[in-house]
Amino acid sequence: MSEHELTEDLLSAYLDDELDAGARADVETRLAASAEWRTILDEVRDTRDAVRRLPAVDGPTEFWARVMADDTVVDLASERRRRRMPRWGLAVAGAAAAAVVVIGVVAVPQPNRVHPAVATLSDEHAARSSVGNDVISSLASIAVPTRLGR
């Protein structure tokens, strides 16, 4: 044998016709000389044949009925993934959802949360300017204070 080390592993490949001509000839030479190899070959053949004789398996009728229903494959696959999610996975998912809500409340600017309120600031400024001669500032009290810049 030129390329393959002659190991017992070759016996299954020999049975399955997965060896090239050279390796096959080497295995046959060894088989002719070794009772141990012949025994192993017989055992492996019996085992292989037993597995190959295992019957085909049909899923339950109801399973296939569901699978063949419209879009059921998608729905069932999602459902099964959900059922198999570990409890801590659900907890993490819940915590993540809660974090999103908190961030939304805390970090996203809300209208009418300017301090001091623009309307109050505007009125105070107008009151101060009313005692002076600032014409422009005196107009502040009529400004529209809400949603500036938004």
Partner: peptide
């Protein structure tokens, strides 16, 4: 693959 198939069958045989 060749090695795993052979060893798998041998293990199967032993188990049986």
């Amino acid at each position: 693959v060749r090695s795993r198939i052979h060893r798998g069958r041998r293990l199967l045989r032993t188990t049986l």
